[in-house]
Amino acid sequence: MTKTKHFLKGLYNAVPIGLGYLFVSFSFGIMAVKSGLTTAQATVISATNLTSAGQAAGVEIIADGGTIIQIILTQLLINLRYALMAIALSQKLAPEFTMPHRVFAAFGITDEIFAMASMEKSLNPFYMYGMIVTSAAGWVTGTFLGASAGSILPASISDALGIMLYGMFAAIVIPEARKQKSVLVAALTAAAFSVFFKFVIKTVPVGFVIIICASAAAAVAAVLFPVKDEEEQEAAA
């Protein structure tokens, strides 16, 4: 296959991802503007970050008047999963995937692109670029529309859309928690810690709450349920 064919296949295969991103990022755009950011700022965040949970947490911290250290640590922790995905993908790259391609394509390692890319036996850089273009187009357009038109919508609708991202997060965690008791315990532990910080220790900034709760719960789960290699493979799939 030629470079162009790989690219076009990537563009086409990522259409469902792009459409999904369009709506989820619409919700992010609304949330960002509600938190005090401008439409331009929200759009730039989406264009440069291309990730949902990290962006949402970043905006929460900015709105909360958090420090840059909190931003950096939170991004590091929330997006750490991309490091794992990057490691997994680095094992299945085609010979054409030279170092410059790695440097560029790394930008587009998202949960969904990773899921599609890891189905390839030999991952072509242009296939990945195609997927990134479609996905990023949806993500950035949706953010812009949500941020700019979100305020035109009646409050009842924009309020209702505010729950979308959280719904997506639930849809990532719950099916896995249903399959694996270890994930269920990890998620419930994290949720319990998070509730505790929200209602009992109210002074800790939101950025650190996420880091503390997530790290503590993951450490508990890692001690109670150390992963086997097969599980890691499953996580990568």
Binding site: A57, I172, E176, A187, S215, A221
Partner: peptide
């Protein structure tokens, strides 16, 4: 193991 559970604990802590 820690890295395996991190995505789920982050999302759970963010959601609830």
């Amino acid at each position: 193991s820690f890295l395996y559970y991190i995505p789920y604990t982050v999302l759970a802590a963010m959601t609830i």
